[in-house]
Simulated assay, not measured.
Amino acid sequence: MKKLLIAALALAASFAQAQTKPIVGSYILAERGVDVVEQLQPGRVTHLLYAFLLICGEGERKQEAEACKGKPNFSIAPHADQDTFSAAFQRLKQRDPKVQVLASVGGWGGSDPFFHLAATAEGRSTFVKHSVDWLRAHPGFDGLDIDWEHPGNNGASNGVQLGSKNDGEYFVQLLQDLRAGLDALGRESGGRHYALTVAINTSKEQLVRMPMGRAAKSLDLVFMMTYDFAGPWTKKAANHTPLRSAKPSLDTSLEASFANLKAEGVPPAKMVAGVAMYGRGFDGVKPDGSYAKPWPNEDGSVAFKDIDSLTGMKAHFDKRTQSWAMVGNGRFVGYDDPRAVRAKVAFAKKQGMAGVFAWELSQDNGEILGAMQP
């Protein structure tokens, strides 16, 4: 009996230790292929987020029209890569049984259906049912990540402006309904826990529109999109993913984002800090920060694995924001250097946060993921 008790206590201690291990997560963009999953070594990540599941029905993208033909309103749009990735994730779990895999729903271009389905109890119920059915059919996944960009204002991402002052309440209700649905699926599955997370814009402007303190009660984790603070949509060139804001009045940094969420009542233990596996570039940059155009492409994005190939540019560290950039020839490319990532890991640990995650794994050469290790 004594041996059984000791064994039970050891098991409980082991479980508690596993629960407190810092999170190292990464999104995986389906369009970039399954090779990043197949090549991932055990123990490198705790969480993987497959992006994206898209939604049929009102607000669906034009690209999903054919796949959604004849499908129920607010169901998950079917695509072959979902089954391909589900099988790859199951193989990964054979190599790495502790890894958690979440299906991320929405994204910048795929969020419009949320504005419609979340607005009614019937719409929410329908979406929850189809989401649970999808998870039941794809056992390689351990839960859902809701990437609604953004309650209150979609930025006319598909040319149609959506958003109302009621979206914040609908957001909370949707998460409550999803939590109940996932818990029911867990009971059906013999006590398995299905995670529910969100990816959110952490600015004060956005948080006014969504009561994150209440929302967090339904969530396992909050993935903080602490990147894209600068880009073609901003007037000035700047590092898009700094640890600290350039001015105290700005909330364009991880440090400010943490303060924003904490003020809203989100527990630090549920916050996951965002890391970028890509840079944002600008051309024709003037001393005042204004610039002529994004560079080297329309959205100014540069994969981290390509940063060293930028010719005529040198790495520059900005002490004020604790961030790195490649600078030269009138160009500026802000990015997360491994040293900046290690500083973010240290910040997250000091603040009692859950850990760090990155967008997006195929853009890394292994250095950023290495720097994310606790």
Rank of each mutant, 00 (worst) to 15 (best):
S157W: 14
F282L: 05
F89S: 02
T321H: 04
N239F: 12
W324S: 00
V37L: 07
V208N: 10
G312M: 10
L92M: 15
Q82T: 07
R61H: 03
D306A: 12
T311N: 15
Q19W: 03
F304L: 02
Q17V: 08
D220K: 11
L11E: 03
M210D: 09
G355R: 07
F304E: 01
Q90F: 14
A12Y: 03
I368P: 04
G109W: 10
D142G: 01
L361A: 09
E367Q: 15
A354W: 10
Q41R: 09
A358K: 02
R44L: 09
A87I: 08
L185E: 06
Q173T: 09
F89P: 03
L361S: 13
E58D: 12
F85E: 04
Q161G: 13
Q17D: 11
Y50R: 01
A67L: 00
A156E: 13
T197E: 09
I23V: 11
Y170E: 09
A199M: 06
G152K: 08
V208I: 09
G191L: 06
V172R: 12
V34G: 01
L49Y: 12
A7V: 10
N154V: 09
G43I: 06
K98D: 15
L221P: 05
K319C: 00
E264K: 08
A8R: 00
R136T: 12
Y27S: 11
S362E: 13
K3I: 00
M326K: 09
A51T: 10
K314S: 15
M1F: 03
A325Y: 06
S125W: 01
N329M: 05
D145E: 13
K69A: 14
V272A: 05
A7P: 03
P242D: 06
A10Q: 06
Y291E: 09
D147C: 03
L175N: 13
